[in-house]
Simulated assay, not measured.
Amino acid sequence: MKQSFWSSVCLALGGLLALAAAMGIGRFVYTPILPSMAEGIPLTPSAAGLIASANFLGYLTGALIGASRFLGGTPRTWFLAGLALSALTSAAMALTSDVWFFMMVRFISGLASAFVLVFSTTLILERLTTAGHSALSAVHFSGVGIGIALSAVLIAALNHNTADWQTLWLASGLATAILLAGATVLVPARSSASLAAPTDGGRAREDGRRPWSPTVIRLVAAYGLFGFGYVITATFVSVMARTTPSLTEIEPFVWLIVGLSAAPSIYVWNLIAAKLGARRAFALACLVEAGGVAMTAVSTSPAIFLIGAALLGGTFMGITALGLAEGRRLTAEAGTSAVRQMLATLTASFGLGQAAGPWIAGQLHGVTGSFQAPSIAAAIALVIAAALAGL
């Protein structure tokens, strides 16, 4: 039992490193690097939004590919390949200042991060559940927050030493490669038969639920609205701080606050879900996040802005995990393939919302000259997501 528990701990830590690399750094490091790119290239908010949307479009594409029944290979192979690609694409951002090149590279990076999320989560949750240690899934999902905090410290330290934006991307690629090495060691290979074996001792059962029941449809729609609702602030919060005179001094701390708040959030929201149920906890978290997004939009007070950043960090990974956990619950008895397809479908909906968010934010910024209008739209989307999930 002890050996099994510690094996599960190592597995969860490997998942933590995987998500820290591909999501916390590979996907989200664009946020703290963006102010330096905007000044050094320079880069307009509209162009910055297009680059971010390309990343999230790649994320959507990766999720759709991950849902395919015909994709060969093992989950471990695919998520490690995704991590390697994430490291390479981060480093490649330093090669030029061409916006179209940035969009192409960030598209590939988004595809890689989706592969890591879908395949590492499928593999790790399956093994943890089989071992009877599903509670350790909180460790796996905390990797995103830890990766964000790590990237915030890394970028702030390099900025303190007046590093240019190219150096910031190269350092991010190197950090991702180091985390890849750790994940490779901590997530051991198993035979494909043992990974795919159904836990009921026979053929995978259908659980009697319709694949596209109203509950599932509402969950998928709410997940997409959540993707739209969180991503505008998550993309531009550092730029908002740097370009607002009263917030300039707190800019190095904003993304760090987001990451530190995100790291323990899975555990907290799991406790809430144990009392309210996953869907109601999902709805509550969306409402809390809507409040945080609105705070960053309507106030120039440093304290309120940081509270808004903390509410964003303290909810977005909780919502992500709750949605994936609910999707897994709805399909668990149908077998590993069905679970993977449900996780990929949710991730695709999420990716569609993410792809739309930065582009719309960039366009609205061009019209209004601020991020207030897109942030308010994001908060409204989160309220609608809460209503759909809570029905």
Rank of each mutant, 00 (worst) to 15 (best):
T244H: 06
D200Y: 08
L128Q: 06
F228E: 09
A278V: 13
P214I: 12
R218C: 12
F119A: 06
A281I: 03
G182A: 04
I384H: 10
A303Y: 14
A297N: 02
R242P: 02
G132T: 12
F28R: 04
T336A: 12
S172M: 00
L284I: 14
M37P: 10
A20R: 03
A149G: 09
R76L: 00
A91D: 01
R242C: 01
F70L: 07
T61V: 15
G62M: 06
I257P: 04
G66Y: 00
I51E: 09
A196E: 14
I33Y: 07
P45E: 13
L271K: 15
R280K: 15
A377E: 03
P45C: 10
T77I: 05
G173N: 05
A290L: 07
M1N: 13
I360E: 04
A285L: 08
L312K: 10
L322T: 09
R329S: 08
T243I: 11
G143N: 02
A38L: 04
Q363E: 12
F371W: 07
I108M: 11
A114D: 07
E39W: 07
P214M: 02
A273D: 12
A294R: 01
S238C: 09
Q341K: 10
V105L: 03
S238D: 15
S137H: 02
L195W: 06
P264G: 10
L306I: 13
S90E: 04
L71R: 11
I304D: 03
A325Q: 03
S261E: 01
G24A: 05
T61M: 15
P32E: 08
I307V: 15
A177R: 00
D200M: 00
L322F: 05
S7K: 13
I155L: 04
F107I: 11
T331C: 08
A149P: 10
T199E: 13
P35D: 06
A12N: 11
A285P: 07
A204T: 14
I266E: 02
V187G: 08
P264D: 01
G318R: 01
T300M: 06
L117T: 13
F115N: 03
L346F: 10
W78A: 06
M342F: 10
G229V: 11
I376P: 10
A278I: 11
A303E: 13
G173A: 04
A177T: 07
A387Y: 14
A283D: 10
W169P: 09
T89L: 00
F371Y: 15
V239G: 02
L34W: 11
G369Q: 06
C10P: 00
P32K: 09
F119C: 07
L352P: 06
V288G: 01
V237P: 00
T121V: 06
R280M: 09
V116H: 02
A309Y: 05
A204S: 12
S4E: 12
A114S: 13
A157F: 14
P214Q: 01
G208C: 03
